[in-house]
Design a protein around this nucleic acid. Structure first.
Lengths: 225, 225
DNA sequence: TAGATTGTTAATCGATTAACAATC
DNA sequence: TAGATTGTTAATCGATTAACAATC
């Protein structure tokens, strides 16, 4: 039986840590579905995601009761439930600002489309890039930002410009009406709370890896000595 | 005064959450240095990184005492200290496996080089791509992986292949001798603990953003009703 | 001096994990 | 039936924040 609050979606807001794991579960479950696997236990799911089985059950518990005692979770059922949770059924439109390497790579990355995210336009400020074709789109001047956001009903702005321009681009996107920002610039964006921001900190990620690598190299050197 | 353990680097291993924030501090401090700012307080640093001032002081405290009461932290001093912590002074070599959009974008991204990470080779398995030029490098066949890792003294492997191949590539890289993996494939890699893995979950990040966006869209719709 | 800011310890908060009753 | 596995609550763990003495 589902509680009132579950039906109405009223329970305490689910922590972002939990939300971040849902795409991982979904990944695994989709793979299993393709392989024709019918049932998966929290144990197996946890293994595949590098988590604790308790975490898996607790996480899924936030969204409903999907499992059967002694059987686990129906792969198909869980797949659909997780897609419903993430809202993949209806699509979101994106505009990419900045047609450099990263912007182009995102535009060409078809897996986002498969997950319901459509790149409707790509903009740049540099005259050398404007007019070029990227992923079947003509790069438009960034001056057309507000117009494009309205015309294409853009929900999400993807910020692929250098750090120095990121805040200005964010502000332009927000005042044009986007509700989410996918930020590839290494800056903390200041935006109103109605706007969701998701940071992709590539160089921070690499530096973190570098730290761990050097720790290990140093340890290995110490052992050898 | 520094304690014994600080000098010897023996204190409890610093949590990865702390390490992840160091690149952010470094970013800010570098920017301030370029702007000619001489001193920064934990308050200002926290503001710029979207953190609590206490967190900043606690974090920095793991690595030494860099601040002066009533003045804050010397921008130059902190910059150098943070680079020392991350070990940016001596470089690491990388090989990119997978010359698709993402692999190419990484190869072309000069900011990694500026942070001490050098892309020495890029490999692919597809005959159409092998031999092409990417960021001044000729794409090599993935069969040469072990050879390249040895010859170029590669420390870090960057995995930019589809999910299905990621584990096999990871294993090949590890047995060739890399100490770190930068993983762009949406899979949990199984590797020995001596190897550091840093996952970049682009589509998980986008799906997480999508969830937040849809929450906000739904809220807005509710308010309108 | 008075006041501001660090470094550090203690308190709080939240997330993860363990445990176990329910049950198929 | 016996045993396995869920859903959920309680216990633990770790990370963040507050507080404050030290001090420039």
């Amino acid at each position: 039986m589902r509680t009132m609050s579950q039906v109405a979606g009223l329970r305490a807001p689910i922590s972002i840590a939990v939300i971040r794991r849902i795409p991982e579960y979904l990944n695994v479950v989709r793979r299993l579905r393709e392989e024709g696997v019918e049932w998966v236990s929290s144990e197996e799911l946890a293994q595949a995601c590098g988590l604790n089985p308790s975490s898996v059950r607790t996480d899924l518990g936030y969204f409903g009761k999907f499992g059967l005692v002694r059987r686990g979770y129906s792969v198909v059922g869980l797949n659909e439930a997780l897609e419903r949770v993430l809202g993949i059924d209806h699509t979101l439109n994106m505009v990419i600002v900045g047609a450099g390497n990263m912007g182009q790579a995102i535009a060409n990355h078809e897996s986002f489309r498969r997950r319901g995210f459509y790149v409707k336009a790509i903009l740049d400020r540099s005259p050398e890039v404007i007019g070029q074709q990227v992923a079947g789109l003509t790069v438009l001047p960034v001056t057309q930002l507000a117009e494009v956001v309205k015309r294409e009903k853009i929900d999400v702005g993807v910020i692929c410009v250098p750090a120095a321009q990121a805040q200005a681009v964010a502000e332009a996107l927000v005042s044009a009406g986007v509700v989410g920002l996918w930020n590839f610039a290494p800056v903390q964006l200041a935006v109103p709370p109605e706007v969701a921001v998701e940071d992709v900190r590539l160089s921070a990620s690499l530096l973190t890896l570098g730290y761990q690598v050097r720790q290990r190299l140093a340890r290995a050197r110490r052992v050898r000595a």
